[in-house]
Design a protein around this nucleic acid. Sequence first.
DNA 1: GACGGCAATGCTCAGATGAGCGGGGAGGAT
DNA 2: ATCCTCCCCGCTCATCTGAGCATTGCCGTC
Lengths: 313, 313
Amino acid sequence: MAQQQLGPLRQVQIAQIATEFYLHGKTRIEIAEETGLSRFKIGRLLEEAVATGIVRFEIASTTGVDLGLSIRLKERFGLHHSVVASVPVESEEAMQEALGATAGTLLLEVLGETDVLGLTSGRTLNAMARSMQELPCRSVVQLAGVAGPIHQSGLEVIRRMSALDGVRPWPIYASLVMSDDQAAAGLRRQPDVRQAFEQFKRITVAVGAIGAWPHNSLMFENPALSEQDRALLLSRGVVAEFAATLVTDAGEVVHDLDSRCLAIAEAQIRAIPTRIAVAGGTSKTRAIRAILTSGLVNGLVTDAATAERLLAA
Amino acid sequence: MAQQQLGPLRQVQIAQIATEFYLHGKTRIEIAEETGLSRFKIGRLLEEAVATGIVRFEIASTTGVDLGLSIRLKERFGLHHSVVASVPVESEEAMQEALGATAGTLLLEVLGETDVLGLTSGRTLNAMARSMQELPCRSVVQLAGVAGPIHQSGLEVIRRMSALDGVRPWPIYASLVMSDDQAAAGLRRQPDVRQAFEQFKRITVAVGAIGAWPHNSLMFENPALSEQDRALLLSRGVVAEFAATLVTDAGEVVHDLDSRCLAIAEAQIRAIPTRIAVAGGTSKTRAIRAILTSGLVNGLVTDAATAERLLAA
DNA sequence: GACGGCAATGCTCAGATGAGCGGGGAGGAT
DNA sequence: ATCCTCCCCGCTCATCTGAGCATTGCCGTC
């Protein structure tokens, strides 16, 4: 791109033509007639306007989405959906609010009357639920039992989402992980749990949080896991979880815990057309990369700083 | 222009297409093939990108010229040449430097080997002369005698400009205005003065300062004018001078002083194809407007704040 | 003055693009 | 359920536009 060594007169001339063309939407031929120059000359001056930087194109959203990062993330990880929220400072609190709100608008856009929505629990999804005034679909299914202490806000997400009129909820009133296979099997036989599980194959859109092992995951901290369990899983390379599916840095899925979990199975997740992870922050970056690598999700909502980190690697 | 109520996904899609089109220069058809959309769809999305403000066009110089103001000034006053320098603060000193430098680059652009340049004196033109390293023409003619005290910097402009190699100067070693007709006529008979006057009809490019009557003009303050003269001229409505041509707010020329001046005549000025005034500042705004209205010049170099004031009226 | 670059200009023709039209599907009203 | 309406889509055709080439005019060199 050549330096701008043009005389001021030529600059003004070019600017005038560029204004007519880009701002007033006139055609090259119209401008040629008005100025008395040939259409070829106009075309060449417009080229020069771009080459010298007199005309610059700015592509940006006014609604807090970093479009450039969204695009790069989408292309880098082969995602169908990618939305990067422009969060100015990286305060955990503010970031979760922003991601939740952004994910909310994304849902409004994606969901149709006939869709069936699957959700996990989590702080960020709570923020999302709080931000939503309406839900364009009629069924909401819980993708997994509650990861953290059940009495806490584990069921808040689905409760809020289904509080909106006419939405049918399929909650799972149980913990995500059990201390042994039999306990999990027993719960799976319960009618209400079974009903939720029945819905998994109907789900068309899934939205879930990502847990970062070992330092930022309620599932990892769940008391049903023994220290031995945790050590074993870490030694297997687990760095992230989505719903209850465990993933390594290489994006490989670890199934060791499957039979002790009350959650949608990996294969069922992959069968869902639209599956979106919502997560951000330094502590979750590695986990997010692992989940993206696994192909478990094909959409991501994250913050700008995390997006940069994901792209930097 | 519609508000941007688009979902984030659509925003990202539009941004991606706009990036390919505007930044990477691909054609709509290419983008259509890559994305699998029809070329019509691409065209409509690009329209939407502009309509919603996702794509914005910025037209600006990187060399201190305010292109938008230049264009507006040009159109408003029917000028051939108009250059507005972006001077951040309105310090008289800095402004004159900036205007001088800008006028200098303008001259470099406008002048050719065969041109004959006419110049007046003045602080701003001094700054111009100082900024110039080369002069693409071979003859420089002084348009008028020196307006202020002759021993001061009155002849500095033409001295500097002709100091550059191979440039022939035609200076006028005399004051701009005399106390009576006879004195002026006597000087006009002097060989050196006559030689300069002979050149007037050869001039192809004239650059001059503007004097603002009564508070910012060396000509007005010239001792050859009596208090009576001044009062009379002001009563005739004179508010500005270019070379030695006096102009009223309405743009009408006042000839009362012609026979006492050593300067190019109005008609000769108007015969010059390119005649550019260089002036700026609050105190000169009214005078500049008067000169522009008179049609005495067809080009202007001024500062951004003055340009705004000229356009505001 | 003659000649050979060199840059700028305008042309041809193929390809890209926009305006306006008609078809078809989703959603709402009766 | 049926119709209606609106919106979105892709088509045709006329227009606009770009790539490449020929011409012009300018300048420096001999």
